[in-house]
Design a protein around this nucleic acid. Structure first.
Lengths: 341, 341
DNA sequence: CTGAAAGCGCTTACAG
DNA sequence: CTGAAAGCGCTTACAG
């Protein structure tokens, strides 16, 4: 069943059918009705390959998600989809795993799907530097800061990772903790001051907070670099417990990691928060269902979704990129104990 | 940059470039080398829209996943992708939410992407009955039984849901529990004997086990139908605790639901397993990180992935559909207590 | 308002 | 081994 068949059955030309299909003006009410009837009756669906091959200015927004298992992103995606729908756009989802080149994929999507814009959930600075120049449509990077990349068609919205991590560390230091371990992503540790990926920024925040409080912090001992996963968090916590005498608290750079750490602490015969305090990051739904409920830095997923979509839609008109920070929030759960109490 | 540009730069015709692009024979070594050089240098990537518009017999397998938040499926997808890659196929992922029509989407994919086959992760019997006739390529439904649907091009691989749930119930009854609540999906409760979706089959298994043990089971009181989510599990457990006097155990039809239930039980001032025993379903990674570790019916995700891919690939040659049950396993965690102990 | 026709970027018989 | 050309199913100026 092609548009040609529909034309034949309706007695009109393919061009007229195409106009009806796309809700364009310049079709008589009678023709529209007749064609619509045939469409209905045959259940015809246009071939999007042919459509994209020709069409300019689709109503489609691509969403490129880095890390299919990232529960924070899952929530954001869901909300973005309904926001885009409400704005008369359609969303197409593309998942790439953490180690793949999201920008290369986006470049291909750009060429083939001809989307009006692209939303990136998560992104790696190196990939952007290397391949983003190929992408000409308006883009928005969510949860990672992009102003330093300097692309005219790339906006960003994220929380301040340095500040967020600093606040987590502050919270622990204020509660009297002096030896805090940190479980970060695989590239968490680099030459001091270098690096701008999420893990590195958060580690920077932890270090700054310690410096401000006059508390020593030894990255070699107190930081473990691992994967953003349950197993990563489990191993990370185990290693910190073994390696850091006097450890009383742990910051994990994601709630999923924190959940792994929770179990590792339990398996070491210790309790959270009585023996070890624990703070996660992201504020995903699961964090509130843990026992104990996780204290965490909540990234406002809903706000990230809303601002991300809103800024992108605006940018599609104005052509101007915008970089915005959205507030985060330390959510107190049941996983931190005051040492002085 | 199109194939035409490449042809021009290399000095050959577009047809020759196309043959090189697709690794086809009938190109001189010299031509191949020259064209390959231009390809390399320009970074040319063919437009898949144009390609699919024309091409028959792609190397592509579509994977249609029902429920983006389903952690069991997430694990299966990952393994399927690498299996397909190893078999020289490429996988394309499509997510639909639990309430959408996965078969309608697949029909469109079939028409447009012209995949060699389609893997369904999860599926609704009604959607298959209504729309599967439009799909002509070999298909495989994973985790849901499809032999009764009677389609010549649809295979299936799944565990025996009736038996799995029965075994969970057996385990509790053997441990001395007599009043077991069940948290199931939204369509868990229907006229007895009717219905063949996953929730219904599992409920059937629970009922059969009770009957065999001579233990009364009152669905109106002991079953709550809710969503497959943390919140669903939380509410379900709360309702069961309020509604079932003498309740000593709960079976949740997914581990995610069980995790919600875990928290609800905690919030009711009760402990797992001391006061309430709990069994989940699926055997996802998170279940092993809960405190207490969940006792659960593990669906062998890896085996489901391997058999699903293997049978589909075979079916693509033979044209014959196969329906296979794979074993499941009750994994003992720390969430069930023997009442007689 | 409607139709005929060009063309999107490829693949694939068909000649040579 | 290589090229010229038809055609995949649409959209979109261009006439009428």
């Amino acid at each position: 069943m092609t548009i040609k068949d529909v034309a034949q059955r309706s007695g009109y030309a393919v061009g007229t059918v195409s106009r009806v299909l796309n809700g364009q003006p310049g079709v008589s009410a009678e023709a529209r009705a007749r064609i619509l009837a045939v469409l209905e009756q045959t259940g015809f669906r246009p071939n999007t390959n042919a459509r994209h091959l020709k069409q300019r200015g689709s109503r489609e927004i691509g969403i490129v998600v880095k890390g299919a298992g990232n529960l924070l992103f899952a929530g954001i995606v869901e909300e973005m989809q309904s926001l885009l729908k409400a704005a008369g756009m359609t969303a197409s989802l593309y998942y790439v795993d953490e180690s793949s080149d999201e920008v290369g994929l986006a470049a291909q999507i750009c060429r083939e799907q001809k989307p009006r814009g692209i939303l990136f959930l998560g992104g790696n600075g190196e990939n952007f530097a290397r391949r983003f120049a190929d992408i000409t449509c308006p883009c928005m990077l969510v949860t990672t800061r992009a102003d330093a990349f300097g692309f005219a068609n790339l906006s960003s919205v994220c929380t301040d990772d340095v500040l967020g991590a600093a606040q987590a560390m502050d919270h622990l230091l204020d509660a009297g903790h002096r030896t805090v371990g940190v479980i970060g992503g695989e590239h968490a540790v680099v030459a001091p001051g270098k690096g701008c990926n999420t893990s590195q920024l958060r580690l920077l925040g932890c270090q700054q907070a310690c410096r401000q409080h006059g508390v020593p912090f030894d990255p070699d001992r107190q930081v473990v670099a691992t994967r953003y996963s349950l197993a990563g968090g489990y191993e990370g916590a185990r290693e910190l417990l073994a390696r850091c005498p006097g450890l009383t608290a742990i910051i994990a750079m994601s709630d999923v990691m924190a959940m792994g750490a929770l179990r590792a602490i339990h398996d070491a015969g210790l309790r959270v928060p009585q023996d070890i305090s624990l703070i996660g990051y992201d504020g995903i739904e699961q964090a509130a269902y843990c026992v104990p409920r996780l204290t965490t830095i909540r990234q406002n997923a809903s706000l990230l979704a809303r601002r991300g979509v809103d800024i992108l839609l605006r940018q599609m008109d104005s052509g101007e990129a915008v970089h915005e920070l959205v507030p985060f929030e330390l959510v107190e759960g049941e996983s931190v104990r005051r040492l002085d109490a």
